[in-house]
Amino acid sequence: MSDLSLHTGRSGPLTRLSDWLWRNPRMLILLLLTPPALWLGIIYLGSLFALLAQSFFSIDEFSGLIVYEFTLKTYGELFTPANFDIIVRTVVMAAAVTVAAALISFPIAYYAARYAKGKWKAVFYLGVMLPLWSSYLVKVYSWKLILAKEGILNWLFEILHMKWLLEAYLAIPVIGGNSLSVSWTGTFLVFLYVWLPFMVLPIQASLERVPTSMLEASGDLGANPGQSFRYVLLPLALPGVIAGSIFTFSLTLGDYIIPQIVGSSRRFIGQAVYSYQGTAGNIPLAAAFAVVPIVIMGVYLWVAKRKGAFDAL
């Protein structure tokens, strides 16, 4: 027997280090996790808490200077009609975008998960991901051109002799407007387009994990396709839908660029934060506004958990 049967000839500091880490796997995990944990802890949570702290200060009515004393006054200001409008407007928009994205994404994701094979699967991924590759701003500006009064969509309606339909729609208060590009419908459409991939992909992933036999078993036990969808497919895909809705909902809650370019100039939360922290110097109110989406998302996740959305995980 060779003397080297247990110890190979290799040695050196790196080898010794890997030997030592092999014997102490916990140290390896510690080494791997410390940098990201520090990043998350200090940079991310730190800034979050700084923000939170700011929201408990207030701005002095006369001097416009920040008063560094604990108060809930700033949160109270969120409930003034103009500010509360902003919150309601943003939440309604985010909810509408999320529901519409889920409705549109489900069939697409279902097709991709169940039927698309080989080449078509590649086409699906390309189709869903392609919009993500181009610049966000370019997409939003192109939508502005599509929706404009003298834009492509209007032209299309005109060619089809359906302009009366578009005009009747735009005459509806709140969702209508002078043209699609200055209406809420326009903002909604652009949000929907821009965030759609974030809904399609999680749903597709969750649907792929549902075995075909699950649906067959449901049908076998007497459930028609509608019932199978309601009682089996939807509950099993729900974590994916929830994951997607977290993306679309929170992205819509926080976005401040789309409503600035397409829509009626009525503010959304992101824009409010942007203008209050700017020249206005009203950082407490900006911080309080920034807390709103965090609270809403927290409540949303809590309700989803309570309703059993994550039971199939």
Binding site: I59, G64, P81, A82, N83, D85, T279, A280
Partner: peptide
């Protein structure tokens, strides 16, 4: 920049209120 201590009339509406009120006006308030 509009400031609360203004030259012409002593007390004026400061800029931070211009910001929030203009947001309100655009929002239809």
């Amino acid at each position: 920049t509009p400031v609360s201590k203004c030259e012409s009339q002593g007390t004026c509406v400061p800029y931070y209120r211009w910001v929030s009120d203009y947001i309100g006006v655009i929002g239809g308030r």
